[in-house]
């Protein structure tokens, strides 16, 4: 079973979703971090899928 304290033994590797400055400050101190180009869901996936089906005539 995984434990929170296991995290303390690993190298911290971060995914940042949101404010770019949080990524920049981690870059600054040499922590590995990747920024997600996050966008609010456009009307929900299901809606887009439904629309897509309609377009393709299915």
């Amino acid at each position: 079973m995984r434990k929170i304290s296991d995290l303390f033994k690993q190298e911290l590797k971060v995914i940042n979703i949101g404010l770019l400055s949080f990524k920049e400050s981690l870059d600054d101190v040499g922590v590995k971090v990747i920024q997600v180009d996050w966008r609010p869901p456009a009307g929900g996936d299901q809606e887009v899928m439904d629309a897509l089906k309609k377009l393709l005539g299915k």
């Binding site: 456009a42 009307g43 809606e47 887009v48 629309a51 897509l52 377009l55």
Partner: peptide
């Protein structure tokens, strides 16, 4: 090419 429909 695949297009997506955005709801208006």
């Amino acid at each position: 090419s695949l297009s997506l429909v955005l709801k208006v």
